[in-house]
Amino acid sequence: MNESTGPRRVRESAPWPLVVLGIIGVALFVVPLLGLATRTPWGDLTELITSDVVADALRLSLVTSLLATAISLVLGVPLAWLLARVEFPGRNVVRAVVTLPMVLPPVVGGAALLFAFGRRGLVGEPLNEATGLLLPFSIWGAVLANTFVAMPFLVITVEGALSGLDPHFERAAATLGASRLTVFRRVTLPMIAPSLVAGAVLTWARALGEFGATVTFAGNLQGRTQTLPLAVFVALESNRDAAVAISLVLVAVSLTVLIGLRDRWWART
């Protein structure tokens, strides 16, 4: 492509097969939203979404998804760095295991969590005996389920950014006497900041929509473990209006954050 073909020129001459397929692609996402909108009981909407079931679920969804994102950042960034920078035996196996929750049906993940961290579980039983702590049926169970399913999005995003980083800056800092940890903190992290934010947003969005692992591991109790997706699911066949209203809240919250962050951060990446 020569110099004269700037972005404007490319747009004007976009080949029609790409445009047609692109429009079909967009329709795939827009049409279901329209379907939801046409079934929305607009008249009763305020009443439906201010009910205590929705308020509790919204609060729980925000708390659990944000906590899961925070835990993912604390554990996921170091993990991504190790995967990107340190050659150790079995690295590919570790990478596969870490990304497994992305392809695993969440219900399977939830069952695995139950057998590991449940009251009779591998880790859960000694943990319960030593501390009395019980993860299933508690808000911490919901946070753990969210983290299990969502953290891989952070790890692969950050690992990708670290692998694509120009190593010269880090080497220069190290040459100037900075310790490895200082280099990581002062040079590496600022350079991957946009990817870090993008990864955190993806992680948060995945955690917000989490259903299968949460219901399987943490159960479903209003105010304790019933997040928005669970509230939608139990309402769907008995009170459709409520289910649609809750879905709309979920769509609105997610879109607001995604659009807001996209303007602020993603344009730079």
């Binding site: 049926f137 219901v215 943490a218 159960g219 209003q222 473990t225």
Partner: peptide, 10 residues
């Protein structure tokens, strides 16, 4: 209840 499961098998 500590949980209200979405179906009997769960």
């Amino acid at each position: 209840p500590d949980t209200n499961e979405p179906d009997v098998r769960a």
